[in-house]
Amino acid sequence: MSTTSYLLSGFGGQGILFAGKFLAYKGLVEDKQLSWLPSYGPEMRGGTASCSVIVGDEPVGSPIVSAPDVLVAMNLPSLDRYEAAVVPGGMIVADATLIERKVTRTDVRAFYLPATRLAGEKGLDGLANMILIGKVLKECGGFCRETAEAALHKVISARHADKLQANFEALRLGASL
């Protein structure tokens, strides 16, 4: 019996909502209770984007994540804004290519991945988000190839099926770090 709340935040265009959808579909594949709530409105059009995801065994109450178990921060404003909100004992995964500072809190687990740089180097352009999610999966119970693939098949439409492999590689790269 456990529920995990995720808050994903970054610039519009970094794939925040997509990464959240992946987590939601992974929950669906695992027959969990879940909710996915995006930020919407003007900030989606080129400002900050954020996304609340809750996955667990019990029906989800409020879909709004104000105290996340897991924070994925893809830019500095996101870390500045949400670092304090993470529950004690929670986890912060930050894109170290774009965030120079460290997490100041000592009561959370912090991981720094140069995800944007790695994505560029490994031919996984635009997939820094999935590298970070790979790390999240690894630290939250382990990376499972089957559920990851099943969720990717659901979240990536048939029209974009050529993107499946790269997304999977990005997840696996993140999970190996």
């Binding site: 959808k21 939601a24 669906l28 209770q33 879940l34 909710s35 996915w36 709530l37 995006p38 919407y40 989800v60 879909p63 709004i64």
Partner: peptide, 10 residues
Amino acid sequence: DGTMGQMMEP
């Protein structure tokens, strides 16, 4: 409301 419209659930 906006939350109900925008959120995804099974």
